[in-house]
């Protein structure tokens, strides 16, 4: 099976869906001739032309708002926001419009649209090219939120997101683009939304994570395996809706839970997972639910020592795992 990078898988996911379904279009800043600032849409302009790969004016609300209108009128737009940090001007269109259009029309209109955006730190991007802002969208009924951690899932989830009848926010860790490689089949496949994946089996501690942090969690789990601690790593993959069955099953089986995310912890995905475990698994727990995430500062700072302080890594996760194991 061919090995692809995470960004190649994303690009091929778009390309294959555009070949399969002429309703699929791509729109955003620099997505056309340049092929995207990260090259996620490289080659699409040449293959599909300017009517389906659209360089838009530099205006995020328009990128999303026009995609909404195009989706209402029968297309399947993929709107790219160049960095998740710049999604804020489009939040009114995402939250007040896309998320509510099916509900407010009592089911008459839907918005089959994907908003792709790179997120995450570790690339010296500082405050405005490093944020992890998934939690604010996970709060919104009407949206689906997807964060892949492997090339296989990146492609399969993206294809499902494009085919989904409702708006899906698809967040890609920009450091994973070229860091993470993995096997991706040539033949057509999809990965269903709303389903987590157990990426490492274990019975002692259940680790829940998503995106790049999933990979770090696996490394940390491998590191303490030598000392006899057997950790399960559950990759949430879809953050809304969460896979309750997978969360509850793993938490009950292991009795100890660590939730790991890059974002700061207050009112976050980790908070929600911890709350689910507290409500559904209380009698099965052998330790308090633990969370590990970024510090409560506005965003990732630039200077390397500051960025390293912010970012998690396998060693920091391992430390927390040992605390939990010893409890």
């Amino acid at each position: 099976m061919p090995v692809k990078s995470y960004i190649e898988a994303i690009r091929e996911g778009m390309r294959d869906e555009m070949r399969r379904d002429e309703r699929v279009i791509v729109m955003g800043e620099d997505v056309g001739v340049k092929g995207g600032v990260f090259k996620a849409t490289d080659g699409l302009f040449t293959e599909f032309g300017e009517m389906r790969v659209i360089d838009t004016p530099l205006a995020e609300s328009a990128i999303v708002g026009v995609a909404i209108g195009a989706a209402i009128n029968g297309l399947r737009p993929i709107a790219e926001i160049q960095f998740q940090d710049f999604i804020m001007p489009a939040v009114d269109q995402i939250v007040s419009e896309a998320a509510k259009i099916r509900y407010r029309s009592n089911g008459d209109f839907g918005v089959p649209m994907v908003v792709r955006a790179p997120y995450g730190g570790g690339v010296h991007g500082a405050l405005y090219h490093s944020q992890s802002m998934e939690a604010m969208f996970c709060h919104i009924p009407g949206l689906k939120v997807v964060v892949p951690s492997t090339p296989y899932d990146a492609k399969g989830l993206l294809r499902s997101a494009i085919r989904d009848p409702d708006p899906v926010l698809y967040f890609e860790h920009k450091r994973a683009y070229r860091l993470i490689k993995g096997e991706v089949p040539e033949e057509e496949f999809t990965v269903p939304l709303g389903r987590a994946a157990t990426v490492r089996e274990g019975d002692d501690i259940a680790i829940f994570s998503y995106g790049l942090m999933t990979r770090f969690c696996v490394e940390a789990a491998d590191a303490i395996a030598a000392d006899g601690f057997d950790c399960a790593v559950v990759d949430l993959r879809t953050l809304r809706p969460l896979d309750l069955e997978a969360i509850v099953g793993a938490a009950r089986r292991c009795g100890k839970v660590l939730v790991v995310q890059e974002a700061n912890l207050a009112v976050s995905v980790a908070s929600e997972v911890a709350a689910i475990v507290a409500e559904e698994c209380f009698e099965y727990l052998d330790a308090p639910v633990m969370r590990l995430g970024g510090p409560e500062i506005p965003a990732v700072p630039f200077s390397p020592p500051l960025e390293e302080f912010y970012m998690l890594n396998p060693a920091k996760i391992e430390t927390r795992l040992r605390e939990l194991a010893a409890y």
Partner: peptide, 19 residues
């Protein structure tokens, strides 16, 4: 379908026109 926030619908009309 329109919401209560004003002018958001201009973009939806653009999208329908684009399609």
């Amino acid at each position: 379908t329109g919401g209560s926030a004003v002018a958001t619908q201009v973009l939806h009309a653009c999208g329908a026109a684009l399609a």
